[in-house]
């Protein structure tokens, strides 16, 4: 069974078609990177997969059941910014999705330990650095034990050193939980370093132009060629890409 199986109808905002008709199936436990230029609809796609948006006529099945609205126990999202609620402690932020936060205290604390912030449980978000806040956001996304973690460029707003550590941490934590990961990014090298499978999107309307299932093997053998192929696919309509 697919981890996630989406049939997405076109998404229009006014006159503009942001996203064309798409099909996407994701395998359990795999890491997928989705690369595309700014404005190609990749964030819109991510929101649809996470149940935050639902174009009429679309269907998203997660673990075989339809996803009607967000269900973090199946699909959890980590945003570009940490988006911690400033009036809650770090621990309360982590257990935001808990039905009874008091019962899940131990779980929140162990997740904070996993991201190296056990000592910060009772701190407030204003006391954290950007990288630390994003680690709390990771713990929050993992808290409901999702089987798919959606990442909307969560590494782009932190400094280079924290970025490497955060990325490694995401991969390690997701692997430890057998959680599939879909990373949205506009950075080709980040995608190549991250993914088992690589999807490239193009804009007007947003659509897949490349889908490599065997990225690990290709990267090991011909990284530079693969990189060029992805860049060519990205720039096919003249949009400059990093």
């Amino acid at each position: 069974m697919n981890e996630l199986s989406a049939r997405i109808a076109a998404r229009r905002y006014g006159e503009r078609t942001v996203l064309g008709e798409l099909r996407l199936d994701l395998d359990p436990g795999k890491r997928v990177a989705l690369v595309g230029p700014s404005g190609c609809g990749k964030s819109t796609l991510l929101r649809i997969l996470g149940g935050l948006d639902a174009p009429p006529g679309s269907s998203v099945l997660a673990k075989g059941r339809p996803l009607n609205g967000p269900d973090p126990t199946r699909v959890s999202i980590m945003f570009q910014e940490p988006r911690l609620l400033p009036w809650l402690t770090v621990e309360e932020n982590v257990s935001l999705s808990a039905v009874s936060p008091s019962r899940d205290k131990a779980r929140a604390q162990s997740l904070l330990g996993d991201v190296g912030l056990a000592a910060w449980a009772s701190a407030f978000p204003r006391q954290l650095s950007g990288g630390m806040a994003q680690r709390v956001a990771l713990a929050r996304a993992l808290f409901p034990s999702p089987s798919l973690l959606l990442l909307d460029e969560p590494f782009s707003a932190v400094d280079a050193i924290s970025r490497e550590r955060l990325r490694a941490l995401v991969l390690e934590r997701a692997a430890a939980r057998d959680c599939a990961v879909l990373l949205v990014t506009h950075d080709v090298d980040e995608a190549l370093g991250f993914a088992d499978r690589l999807l490239v999107m193009q804009s007007n309307p947003g659509r897949f132009v490349l889908d490599h299932q065997d990225v690990r093997i290709r990267v090991a053998a011909h990284r530079e060629e693969l990189r060029k192929e992805v860049l060519a696919a990205l720039s096919s309509d003249g949009i400059a890409v990093r």
Partner: peptide, 12 residues
Amino acid sequence: RKLVEVGVANGL
């Protein structure tokens, strides 16, 4: 709006 979205995404 982004904080409200966090609440929604976390199933509140």
